[in-house]
Computed example of a mutant assay.
Amino acid sequence: MNLVCIVCAGVLLLAGSAVAQEGGKAIPKIVISLGTATPGGGFPLYGNAFAEVMNAADPALSIAPRNTKGSNENIPLLEKGELDIGLVAGEPAYEAFMGIGRPATRIKILTAIYSSPGMFVVRADSSYRTISDLKGKPIAFGARGSGLPILSRYMLDGLGLKQDEDFQAVYLDRAGDGPAMVLDGRVAALWGAGIGWPGFKAVADSPGGARFIAPDADEIARIRARHSYLKPLTVPAGSYPNQTAPIPSVGSWSFVLVRENLPDDVAYHLARTLHGVEGAFCQKLAQACETTAANTVAAAPDIGLIHPGVLKYFREIGVVK
């Protein structure tokens, strides 16, 4: 059962639509279910901030985040109409849009959320300094069902490495479990992506500190020669404690995706509210500074993958002709 409730132009989409009060007047309430991921990861952090900013900006909205297993669960939940919107990493989104290993999806893009340069974090006192140093070692590649293990699989494939054969791959039940496993030595490294990612921050904030491992310039070229949709991305200096230099890597953009049959007027309303509070969202969460209308148009694999209601708003503000 989808959880959107809206009265719009006299049409009741679901019985028992909620009602908000504004200026003493009853207004229709739009109730939106938002799928994030397992606790301790970047998606719940972003999703909770997204809901707080949007709900505060618009009394007609009630966005309710809920933890899921991540990208690989959010996509089928959206396709079945059991979520209204969901956070999905770039690689699972790309595979779903392109029909890689599955039928092409018909769900659409609401917004690009942030870029996700991938890298490993190790303890600062470890001897590991390159990706090759990690071969044969236990590596936490992220939570089961999240997009992170898919990004690492593509990146390693570009280097001629197999994630489940050349490493002792560990997949987590909860994203938040990874940092402790690095710190106590159960794994040599934790794979992750993005700026301000909670797993990286937890290791970097530890008393011993952290070191980051990403592909070098030659490795980036090799990865992109095999998987050209992966983009060169950089983690700016100072993104994590004691990170004094920028870290070049590869990665993709993550998205908020919406179910195919989300009404155009609802998608328009969400886009108008979101991009009207870009500044406030950026102040609340550093990662959200990349959540802009312009970045959405640039990051979408094809403009036709953006929801028609969102495109209507983008045309009104001149981002799309």
Results as ranks from 00 to 15, higher is better:
53 V>G: 02
228 S>I: 06
100 I>N: 10
233 L>K: 00
253 W>V: 06
292 T>A: 10
198 P>M: 03
296 T>V: 08
39 P>R: 09
153 R>H: 12
171 Y>V: 03
52 E>G: 06
133 D>K: 11
46 Y>N: 05
57 A>H: 04
286 A>W: 06
48 N>M: 11
182 V>P: 00
97 F>P: 01
217 A>M: 12
138 P>Q: 02
290 E>I: 03
129 R>Y: 09
23 G>R: 10
159 L>S: 11
256 V>C: 15
124 A>W: 00
148 L>S: 09
223 I>C: 08
64 A>R: 14
243 Q>N: 11
247 I>W: 01
143 A>V: 12
74 N>I: 02
149 P>H: 07
274 L>R: 06
194 G>T: 08
314 F>M: 14
120 F>D: 00
205 D>P: 02
29 K>T: 05
18 A>H: 09
259 R>D: 08
16 G>W: 04
214 A>I: 06
227 H>T: 14
122 V>E: 03
131 I>A: 07
316 E>H: 07
196 G>K: 02
139 I>Y: 06
259 R>E: 06
185 G>M: 06
187 V>R: 00
208 G>S: 13
155 M>L: 15
183 L>K: 05
211 R>T: 11
216 D>F: 10
108 K>N: 14
286 A>M: 03
258 V>P: 05
63 I>G: 07
223 I>H: 01
32 I>V: 15
146 S>A: 15
150 I>L: 13
25 K>V: 13
171 Y>A: 02
170 V>L: 13
114 Y>K: 04
61 L>F: 12
284 K>T: 10
67 N>R: 04
233 L>N: 00
142 G>I: 00
269 H>F: 10
320 V>W: 04
319 V>M: 07
313 Y>I: 04
199 G>T: 12
70 G>A: 06
219 E>C: 13
263 P>V: 12
19 V>R: 14
172 L>E: 11
238 G>F: 09
248 P>N: 10
33 S>Q: 09
87 L>G: 14
83 L>Y: 08
109 I>F: 03
170 V>I: 15
23 G>T: 06
68 T>Q: 04
188 A>L: 11
246 P>C: 06
18 A>T: 03
280 A>T: 09
249 S>M: 08
148 L>I: 15
227 H>M: 08
213 I>E: 03
278 E>Q: 14
189 A>R: 03
236 P>T: 05
225 A>V: 09
134 L>S: 03
262 L>P: 08
45 L>N: 02
162 K>F: 06
54 M>D: 00
128 Y>C: 05
154 Y>N: 07
110 L>Y: 03
263 P>D: 13
69 K>R: 15
125 D>P: 01
267 A>H: 01
248 P>E: 09
277 V>Y: 09
55 N>T: 04
244 T>V: 12
26 A>Y: 05
228 S>G: 11
211 R>S: 12
227 H>R: 13
145 G>P: 10
73 E>K: 08
10 G>Y: 12
226 R>V: 14
187 V>L: 05
68 T>G: 03
135 K>N: 03
310 V>R: 00
238 G>W: 04
195 I>V: 15
105 T>M: 04
139 I>H: 05
255 F>Q: 00
71 S>A: 13
65 P>H: 03
99 G>Y: 09
145 G>Y: 02
133 D>W: 12
268 Y>L: 13
6 I>D: 05
5 C>N: 14
44 P>W: 00
35 G>S: 06
80 K>G: 10
282 C>I: 00
11 V>S: 11
238 G>H: 07
161 L>C: 09
310 V>Y: 00
143 A>F: 04
135 K>S: 07
157 D>N: 15
